[in-house]
Design a protein around this nucleic acid. Structure first.
Lengths: 206, 206
DNA sequence: TACGTTACATACCAGTTAGTATGTTTGTCA
DNA sequence: TGACAAACATACTAACTGGTATGTAACGTA
């Protein structure tokens, strides 16, 4: 009964799994899925092949797990939580977008959006990735659309606006801004580009 | 003196180089630079290692050449030529954007934009790629900005618009739309998303 | 406390892939 | 026409990389 719960490293399979997932995520974020090397992931965690292949059946399933267990919750925490119960959903949306460069400016400019990176790389090549990534996109779209509908009901934005289509465009424009900043590797360029998006958001106002 | 100029395959180094470049471009377009295999390129062309390493010093320089000699001219032909001398630059811009899904719908949805793909994959990893891709982006931005300034001078769009920033946002939004369509693999979704962009363009009008 | 299972570690393998060394043919030019 | 360089082809290698086979220590459990 004397289980040492001091999160030390005696034996903790759940934590081990998370450690692998997190390291794999960072490697994929930096090098892409195809560029990610299992050996690099293991070197960073201090674990070995045995541990990795105990928790994941192969490289592909590790990649899938990164989408489902890392990227999906990450997107939810960034978007769902701030938007779900905001008084002014449009303002909340603009707030999230504008403060994005402040969170992790260096990583965001260097490596872009983890979700978008994987979509661009893997969607055409692997249907398993495509379906999982599409699910994350659908969830994101749903929360964005809900926020817009909510804002429309509260008459913050015009009644003639197609919330479904607008949500799609906002997502696209945002990913586009982040992606464009990557070629220039400049925070200023990111902010400048995002200003165009906030202007667009303003053009929706009632 | 009897050089058979019937473009047959006696010996034609320039053509050989172009054949390699074109095959490499398609492989990169489909699999990414890291996913592109020299053997696949050679298999498609019917050539061998000797030919490839005679024209290019290594994989990297082949990748660089694809950016400079294939992607750069491709972007120029799509953007510069239609916009450079249009009577109504804003309408011409909207025209290019709207007709984009009609050109190569299948490839565009499956594999996205060749330029954006390479930026997202290679900019963080290889400064040689980054600089060359940034040059292409700068040229594209210059022509877009010129079109906007031209439209502003002809009073097609409002005088208070920052053409530099707006050009950046248009590029970002367009790449975003194309990228988003990839996860859904749907032409409808691309068109729907582009409608948001054309709406934005309309909001610039005088 | 013996036993089986989980959670790893270690050692190794086979296929892939960029790159090289060398040979051969074609065109050019003195 | 003979020599020389350009334009390839062929054969090979070394390193990487995902995956496997096997061993072992921790943990729950009857």
């Amino acid at each position: 009964m004397a289980t040492s719960n001091t999160q030390r490293s005696e034996r903790n399979p759940d934590k081990t799994r998370q450690v692998i997932l997190q390291a794999a995520f960072m490697e994929i974020y930096r090098k892409g899925y195809q560029g990610m090397r299992l050996d690099s992931v293991l070197a960073e965690t201090g674990l070995t092949k045995g541990a990795l292949y105990h928790h994941f059946s192969n490289k592909q399933s590790l990649g899938y797990a990164v989408v489902e267990d890392v990227i999906q919750p990450m997107m939810a925490s960034i978007w769902e939580e701030p938007l779900i119960a905001a008084d002014d959903p449009l303002a909340a949306l603009a707030e999230v977008i504008e403060t994005l460069p402040d969170k992790k400016p260096r990583e965001l400019i260097l490596f872009g959006c983890p979700l978008n990176n994987l979509i661009q790389e893997m969607s055409p090549q692997d249907s398993g990735f495509r379906e999982r990534l599409d699910t994350v996109m659908s969830n994101w779209h749903a929360t964005t659309e809900k926020a817009l509908i909510n804002a429309q009901e509260k008459e913050f934005i015009r009644a003639d606006i197609d919330c479904h289509e607008t949500a799609t465009f906002i997502m696209a424009a945002l990913e586009g801004c982040i992606g464009l900043a990557k070629s220039a590797q400049s925070v200023d360029r990111l902010r400048s580009c995002l200003r165009g998006l906030t202007q667009y958001l303003q053009s929706l106002e009632n």
